[in-house]
């Protein structure tokens, strides 16, 4: 039977190394055939914000292509691709109230809107729940 890991994350994109670590954990779990639930709340709802754009670096004199600036929305999209490839489930909920506060409702394909009751349900159903706090 496929096991399930639930994670809650709240750090916004481009602020701390925590976002990278969380995505590494999700990536590793999916590769191990583990279903992953992600409850993104507070600033983390912007991880999947569709309007993110890579940029050049005028200080270094590099173009967009040369800079290869990774966006978190593309990293998350890659996680959804990986889940499909591995035939496991990645379920990603963006906290609705947190989204509305930030006007961050335009997100990539994959995540869905939800709230704390969804997290409560996941906690009850999952094999493990990990809460990654912010500083």
């Amino acid at each position: 039977m496929t096991r399930t890991l639930t994670m809650s994350i709240m750090d916004p994109p481009y602020e701390t190394a925590t976002s990278t670590t969380a995505m590494r954990v999700i990536d590793a779990a999916l590769r191990k055939g583990i279903n992953v639930n992600v409850f993104a709340y507070e600033g983390a709802v912007s991880l999947t914000f569709k309007d993110q754009k890579p940029h050049p670096n005028p200080v270094h004199g590099t173009t967009v292509e040369e800079e290869k600036h990774p966006t978190t929305k593309d990293l998350v999209a890659g996680l959804f691709d990986l889940a499909r490839e591995k035939a496991v489930k990645l379920d990603w909920i963006n906290c609705g109230m947190c989204v509305d506060e930030r006007g961050a409702g335009n997100w990539i394909e994959g995540p869905r809107r939800g709230g704390p009751p969804d997290l409560h349900k996941w906690v009850q159903e999952s094999d493990q729940t990990v809460v990654i706090p912010t500083k």
Binding site: L5, Q128, T129
Partner: peptide, 21 residues
């Protein structure tokens, strides 16, 4: 260790308590 080792530890039999700081 690799990050996958952390996943193994968290998902081990017996369901360990995980604290993240």
């Amino acid at each position: 260790a690799e990050i996958g080792d952390l996943v193994d530890q968290m998902m081990a039999d017996g369901v360990p308590k995980v604290l993240w700081h």
